[in-house]
């Protein structure tokens, strides 16, 4: 994890220079997909945090957890974006928007990527296996597609 943090710090430093042209993305794996999320939105990546269920909550909400005294909502991203397949969650990816924390479980964290903004493409009308509304853009990696998660949409009710 420390490595991750260092890497993040490094990226933070670089960001200033590349800001205009590049987007720093943290990538992660869920099922057959690789997703990207802007690095500045990510608070931290964490393991084994206990989730307290919240009865009567929407089905895409797993519950809440304690992140050093802050209450974090834990979302079942698979249900939220209607991703199909059996997943093996291992890590909490915690993101932040307007002081509100949201965590979702991912299977594996990938590389941190610098993506030229100009190379981002429109999301196609249909993506097999998930709800395309939650994908902001796509980016063509050499071997596969990177899906940029629409964070604002996740925070919508």
């Amino acid at each position: 994890m420390d490595e991750k943090k260092n890497a993040l710090a490094l990226v933070e430093g670089k960001k200033g220079l590349l800001k205009d042209k590049h987007l720093t993305l943290i990538t992660f794996y869920l099922g057959d997909f690789i997703f990207g999320i802007p690095a500045e939105k990510v608070v931290e990546i964490n393991k084994d945090l206990e989730i307290t269920p919240v009865p009567l909550a929407d089905e895409f909400i797993l519950g809440i957890m304690n992140l050093r005294g802050h209450i974090v909502t834990v979302m079942d991203l698979q249900k939220k974006i209607k991703l199909q397949g059996d997943l093996n969650y291992r890590l909490n990816l915690i993101i932040k928007k307007d002081n509100e924390l949201l965590s979702f479980l991912v299977e594996k964290i990938g590389d941190i990527m610098e993506v030229p903004v100009a190379k981002l493409e429109e999301t196609p009308d249909r993506i097999e296996g998930l709800d395309r509304d939650y994908i902001e853009n796509i980016y063509q990696l050499p071997d596969r597609l990177l899906l940029l998660l629409n964070v604002n949409k996740l925070f919508e009710n």
Binding site: V54, D58, I61, T73
Partner: peptide, 11 residues
């Protein structure tokens, strides 16, 4: 008391 996230406002 800590506030809950926006996803629980309807409960």
């Amino acid at each position: 008391v800590k506030p809950l996230g926006r996803w629980f406002k309807n409960i």
